[in-house]
Write a protein that binds this DNA or RNA. Structure first.
Lengths: 205, 205
DNA sequence: CCAGATTTTGTACAATTTGACACAAACGCA
DNA sequence: TGCGTTTGTGTCAAATTGTACAAAATCTGG
């Protein structure tokens, strides 16, 4: 047993580190320290060192971390050292925004299909994609072997869509609808609905 | 001292409870239990009881919680028993999606203005809004007294925009750009970038 | 209408998880 | 070589979650 169980909370911070490191690399930096990285992401240096050290000794005393090396390691750990196919359900405004989003490039993701149940939208072009019918979704996802989905459907349809996605073999759902989804334990869901996020802040105003 | 310091992590769960409760209310339910609510949101019943009891004794043994009463209380606690004005910076696809989003209604928020620095977009209509120039943003926000902003600008512009928002008196920022923002301690930021959210899940695939 | 069974809350206490602190060891540099 | 920097980690403190149960309310069956 070489690998101990890594807490979710640490995994959740890694993408933040990765994002900051990639930004540093874009700016031409070669090395950084836990101190500097911490200032960028608003997390204590000690915490960052401990998080990273869960996976190996990637730094060097006196010098810090090689940015490129750490990026490579984090991408490997998070399994984004490859490109994941992602399907998008819901061709509304938000669906359009995600379809055209260029931030997936170089971050390990690629949208491969868009579905909607509105017959008026089916067949429409969004960028290079043609909106497909949700009736054919299950088969299409299965045959493509896609494991990741993003849902931008109305709250009322979200659970039904999620059920279908799970049935099709999807294992990770990024849910933009304002509802909690009921899924099996081996399926991960991330929620990201604007109202909920705003409500997390108003308490402090 | 009647009110003890409530941990952030509890505050973060309240909007989730609220969302589920509002959904139950829409479906005509009158009461619920910590058990039932927990099943809906995927959190243990004990945890929910403990969270809620931080603010008072809102339930009744043997019966559970009155849904409407709990909604009212949570809205009050989260300060969404009113309507907050929100400004939107960035009139791209995502900006359009948020401007047209109807999930803010009944959740305590209302978009009141949209800004962009692209002179081609300034003056454009988005729904009932006219895109305004970021040059006039600082004054406009100040005069309207807006405290909440959503940013859908490119990563490269996000920090600069955030600085201006802080200067204009904004105290809460929902940031869709894939960068960590550096803001004073009294300003809250919530991050919500698709790639980062997806990367939080790939580890488990 | 009532007594016992059932439900469900709120909380005391225990266990676990998470974060802060401190420092020896390693490295670079002058 | 000696000094300043920075990592990785052991130890401790704090925060968070889980468990269990008394008390309160409702329900049920006669």
């Amino acid at each position: 047993m070489n690998v101990k169980k890594i807490p979710d909370i640490i995994i959740g911070r890694l993408p933040v580190y990765l994002r900051a490191l990639q930004r540093m690399a874009d700016n031409g930096a070669k090395t950084t320290s836990s101190q500097e990285l911490g200032e960028h992401v608003g997390i204590s240096a000690a915490q960052i060192r401990k998080d990273i050290s869960q996976f190996g000794e990637f730094g060097k005393q006196g010098t810090g971390y090689s940015i490129q090396f750490l990026i490579d390691k984090l991408r490997e750990i998070l399994k984004v050292d490859r490109v994941w196919d992602v399907v998008l359900i819901g061709a509304g405004d938000l669906g359009h925004a995600l379809a055209n989003y260029n931030g997936f490039q170089n971050r390990g993701f690629r949208v491969v299909a868009i579905f909607d149940n509105d017959k008026n939208k089916v067949g429409q072009k969004i960028g290079e994609f043609t909106v497909e019918d949700t009736d054919t979704m299950l088969e299409r996802i299965k045959s493509m072997g896609v494991k990741i989905a993003m849902t931008t459907v109305p709250a009322s349809a979200a659970q039904e869509v999620a059920d279908k996605l799970v049935q099709a073999g999807v294992r990770a759902i990024l849910n933009y609808a304002p509802v909690s989804l009921n899924v099996p334990e081996n399926v991960k869901v991330q929620y990201t609905d604007p109202s909920t996020n705003l409500q997390r802040m108003t308490y402090y105003l």
